Simulated assay, not measured.
Amino acid sequence: MLLLADKVVFLTGGTEGIGFECAKVYQQAGARLCIVSNDPRSISRASLELGEQTTEFVLADVSRSRDVKHAIAHCLTVFGQIDVIHNNAGISSPSKALHETSEEEWRKLFEVNVGGIYNTTFHGIDALKKTGGNILNTGSLVGEIGQEIHAAYTATKGAVNALTKSMALDYAPFGIRVNAVAPAGVITPLLRSWSRQQPDPESVEDYLNHIHALGYCPEGDVIADACLFLISNMARFITGCILPVSGGAELGYKKLSSKQNHFHDL
């Protein structure tokens, strides 16, 4: 039995990294997808692999209310319903301490990582009320434990955790569940780019493997499998959960050297 048969998933940031792995898993589970991205090139690449028979792509910026309103309306026009909103789109730059972070950098992080959730909820909640659907937010372990030289980013992920719990309470009367996944390190194109920017790039791979108790830094598919569980009926009595999909990284944060003491979930 397909876990997402007859379900429509509205997925932001679904053309790269964790989001793209989720798109593939959701599609395999029987879902119809409306995928939002602000990158035309990544949409083109994703459409080649996912096809367009059960998948719609919308070029939009989740930090812009009017873009999200249009994307939600398009999804409803094409598919007639929304059963899941997965807020996966996010940014991580800059890698700076708080006093080094510009007002523009601070604003942009919150507009995308937190404002995106506001926008999809504001424009999509009525559709979810009709289906008794659910919301999934992509958080991060650093929202719980912090991270050096990423103060603004970790602040947004802490906000995602708090939002998830409060939204779970607000929407439970409508039968709407709200959860989040909290990865640690995940190998994605953005993480590879981040690794090259570190003071000692050659040692980052070894570091990322060792921060996880299970001994390796995973690909995005392990996060996608957890996301599939949370949005499916298998998790029908789970809400307000911040699920760590972290290989045990939170059990003992390992600092290998002063040059490589950060991890990243994008």
Rank of each mutant, 00 (worst) to 15 (best):
R32Y: 07
M234K: 10
G17C: 09
K255D: 15
D83A: 03
G132C: 07
L163K: 01
L208F: 13
D200C: 09
T55E: 08
G252N: 14
E144L: 12
H150M: 14
L208Y: 14
G175W: 02
A60E: 10
Y171S: 02
S92L: 08
Y118T: 03
G116D: 03
K96P: 04
R177L: 05
A249I: 06
S140M: 05
S95W: 11
N119S: 09
V112L: 02
I223S: 01
D170K: 01
F57P: 04
A97D: 10
Q53R: 15
D225T: 11
H70Y: 09
R41G: 15
H210P: 01
T164E: 03
T138Y: 04
S232E: 05
S63F: 01
K254Q: 10
Y171W: 15
V112P: 02
A249E: 13
T12S: 15
V114Y: 08
I135G: 02
A184T: 06
L163H: 07
A180N: 03
G115Q: 05
I18C: 06
H70P: 04
I18A: 06
S102F: 00
A172V: 02
L48F: 10
S95A: 11
K96F: 08
P94V: 08
L266E: 11
G252R: 13
K7G: 00
S42A: 11
V178N: 02
T12R: 11
S42G: 00
Q260D: 15
L76C: 00
G158C: 08
F20T: 01
N113R: 00
K69L: 10
A155G: 14
E104N: 12
I117W: 04
I125L: 10
L128I: 03
G133F: 01
A73L: 00
D170A: 14
G133H: 04
I72C: 05
L251N: 14
I91N: 01
Y171F: 13
